[in-house]
Design a protein around this nucleic acid. Sequence first.
DNA 1: CCGTTGCAGACTCATGCTCA
DNA 2: TGAGCATGAGTCTGCAACGG
Length: 560
Amino acid sequence: MKYFHDVQTSRKKGLVILSIDSIIQEIKNYDEILEVVFSLIVSAYFQLTNHCYLAIIVEQVHPNKWQLISDITIFCEKFLEHPIDRSYFRWRKVAEETLEYIENLNDNVYNFKHGNEGLTYKDCYLVYKNNREKCVLLFEKNERDERPVPCPQCRTLKIQGHSYPTIGVRSWECKNIFCGYKSKYNRGKRYSLSSIIRQQAILDSQNFIDPKILKNWRRDIVEVSSFSEIYDFLIQCYSLYDDTILIYEKLCQLPPLMFGRKLKIQKVNKLISSQWRNHYHNLKFFKRFLIKKSMKSLTSRENLSSIPEITLYQGDSFNILSQLESNYLGGAVTSPPYYNARNYSQWSNIYCYLYDMYNIFNQVYRCLKEGSPLLINIFDYFDNEKIIVFSDMGKKRLILSSYISFICRYIGFNHLGNIAWDKGEIEGNRNFNQGNYSPYYQAPHNCWEHILIFSKGNPSFDVTKIPKIIKEKPITKIVKGKNIYGHTAPFPEKVPSLLFSLITKDEIILDPFTGSMTTGRVALKYGIKSINIELHKHYCDLALNLLKQQLSKNLQGSLF
DNA sequence: CCGTTGCAGACTCATGCTCA
DNA sequence: TGAGCATGAGTCTGCAACGG
């Protein structure tokens, strides 16, 4: 393999691990933190071998870990902004769709010619020891590399470029008529460099991963007896035997050799250059959706609920919120529609989605009282952003939680923290690795969702009251192939209850995407008034039905 | 009650398909 | 025929259903 693919298989750095806490310990200023972290990411990116991983470990930093995680994630994914001259990049179509949806976007269309590339977000592990929480962010580098790779079957370079199975990964087709491999349609072997490397590792016993490690790390919430297990896991699952691993950490006590990999500990010189922070804040990417929407016309809003404690409006969240008073709500909790996750939540691309979210949360901000909390339940869903390509090759883990955090901070909210909603052993204990115990095949089970905590201005509630993690099974939706609940994505009562533990009983709360009105119904139990908004008539009916059931149950209960 | 069977559901990979 | 898109097979395991 090395003989035939000499250039591409030389592995400079097979994995880069960035342990942030020790590096930025003394820095108090958030902008300075960003400067240091961004410079390190960029330097890591250019040293990292293609198709290899960058892991970033974050514990507790000033002022808030989750704010930093959000900025890091968006930066990693989007920091390379330049024209992409591949024909799969159909920027005209992206521009067309976005301009049609976002009316006030009279920006120069030329901007859409620039695409964003960078590292692909794979996962965020939560690692716990006693009560301490560390986050491990994982990114994969897939840089377009058009250098020809010989056919793994017949070693010839008589090949032709083919498609991109995932963005940034070039695939090839063998054109040698004497090659041992031919498909039914008489086409040659198709392959890519990254798949060749991965498949080679399967056969190599030195790359075998201890199944014990995999068992402990099969979910993305992990309980460890020592945080050094993070390194054991990362090194075994995301690098190959004989690789050189680059580690950025100030006080590193790791041996120079682990599992046959050479560790290179890098001293960090404090880099003071605002270059990358400025670059980040000036990305054209943000300018395509951070645009204020103007209200079209006053739509009639009718309260569908007959109970004084609950207000239920059917209609577009933005329109209805625009008509509400400013500074009078005591809190808000919601689970926004996940981008293109269901047939009731479809947008042409991520810009359109983020534009809607920006405008709706902007209105929520206006309606909230100073100091009041906002909780947002969101999941990093798996889909295509549809801003580079439209097919499956663009499908990836979306960074919705990071986007929402960015948007809300842009509006003016304080991002105070994050509650991890551990959904438990959903879908069994599956760990998709195609039966291979070798690196790069280990995909954990994504078993937690974000509940982001924000406040308007300085919080008037006690932040320390909020737990770091809650365990709650998702509501059973499907019984014998039928959706007995009526809504495909309900959230548990615990989520709105978290909000009610922060506010006083005389407040009015808001849920701009209420669905089956879990928020309103739980609020009623707490004796708190609520305003609920839902776009679809169908869900409003469902909400009222569920409310009716709840009330009749309470009535029965009071008889005893 | 317990062993067996088969399916759900999420994801990847390889290959078929199709357009220009 | 170059290049991108679509899709079905294959992979996993817990659990429900089944049957002795």
